[in-house]
């Protein structure tokens, strides 16, 4: 039997009596905290959405560079969904390429436009406190992310069709 005593933790490193020990931050939160990104222009917004979501979210909440984000996400949303539609439409012939390329941006932009009023009102009521411009940027970010993911799936969808 060992007679060696365990090392005692110094008192100042312990939380005060009766207080809960703070949980360590989750890995995703740490990653988002460490994200760094500043958009050089509307066309660079896609990189931020894919690689540095934490930095993009911070910019959104602090209303930094909103015009750049709105323009970038809007363009990205339209062009990514247009390309996806064209690729998907190419399976059914040349006429369908144009038709689907027009339809997909209409679907994504339309969905964002329809949901924007309820998103703005309910986020305000639940305490998120975003301005209308920030809400527009948030909804466009959603559309842009959806467009990018669709574009990423396009080759698989084309191959499967």
């Amino acid at each position: 039997m060992s007679t060696e005593l365990e090392a005692i933790q110094p008192l100042d490193s312990l939380p005060p009596y009766g207080r809960a020990v703070a949980a360590p931050p989750r890995p995703w939160f740490t990653r988002w905290d460490n994200d760094r990104f500043s958009p050089a222009g509307p066309l660079s917004v896609g990189g931020g959405l894919l690689r540095a979501q934490g930095a993009v979210a911070r910019d959104l909440f602090e209303a930094r560079g909103l015009n750049t984000y709105i323009a970038g996400c809007g363009l990205l949303m339209v062009f990514a969904s247009l390309l996806y539609g064209a690729i998907l439409g190419s399976v059914a012939g040349a006429g369908q390429v144009v038709y689907a390329a027009v339809k997909f941006p209409v679907v994504i932009v339309g969905a964002c436009a329809i949901c924007l009023p309820s998103f703005y009102v309910f986020q305000a009521l639940t305490g998120a406190r975003l301005s209308f411009k920030q809400a527009v940027a948030a909804v466009l970010m959603l559309g842009a992310a959806a467009g990018l993911i669709l574009l990423g799936c396009a080759p698989i969808a084309w191959f499967s069709a």
Binding site: A113, I114, C115, P117, S118, Y120, V121, F122, L125
Partner: peptide, 16 residues
């Protein structure tokens, strides 16, 4: 007014 604004905000979705 809050109730009506919330309903109005849902109107595009419900209208669709």
């Amino acid at each position: 007014c809050t109730l009506a604004i919330c309903l109005g905000a849902c109107a595009p979705v419900v209208g669709l």
